[in-house]
């Protein structure tokens, strides 16, 4: 009889924790939406050079796995995606110097999706790169 009660209690606990974890907050749902859309756009616009795992290609195209680079340059990322970049940069301790083409056709929302995907999936960030942040970035650098 005791065993039976223990079994019921354990089952109830499992169900309780399962529901707790399944109960996503709105933030998580929004993040998931940004990441899923970001991945689609990444495959279309970025993956050719930067690779499906953000691994880059040799010393031609930098990997997108340097979380410190993302942190230090967070405010510049929107401009890089939209307008490309040229000149030498250091990523993961390696020098890269290859012109990155602009992606003028991407909208503010597209850029927010892509950067959320890149910074949370390849980098270690756990926050959304919001459309407001993209607009502010581009405004501050006269790139809107």
């Amino acid at each position: 009889m005791n065993k039976y009660i223990t079994f019921i209690l354990i089952s109830m606990l499992i169900v309780f924790f399962y529901q707790l974890s399944a109960c996503n907050s709105n933030v998580d749902i929004k993040k998931a939406q940004y990441t899923v859309n970001g991945q689609k756009l990444y495959v279309q616009h970025c993956q050719n050079c930067h690779g499906s795992k953000g691994e880059g290609l040799g010393k031609l195209y930098p990997p997108l796995t340097d979380d410190n680079y993302f942190k230090e340059n967070r405010a510049l990322l929107s401009g890089i995606v939209k307008n490309g970049m040229r000149g030498e940069i250091i990523v993961n301790g390696e020098k890269y110097n290859q012109e990155m083409p602009a992606n003028k056709q991407l909208t503010v929302v597209d850029i927010a999706y892509i950067l959320t995907y890149i910074t949370t999936n390849f980098g270690k960030s756990d926050v959304i790169y919001s459309t407001e942040e993209v607009i502010e970035n581009l405004k501050n650098h006269n790139q809107l």
């Binding site: 993956q47 050719n48 050079c49 690779g51 290609l57 040799g58 031609l60 195209y61 012109e99 083409p101």
Partner: peptide
Amino acid sequence: THCPSICPTMQRNLL
């Protein structure tokens, strides 16, 4: 060398 479309993937695979 400055091909923005299919070349990087193709060269990654040939590599």
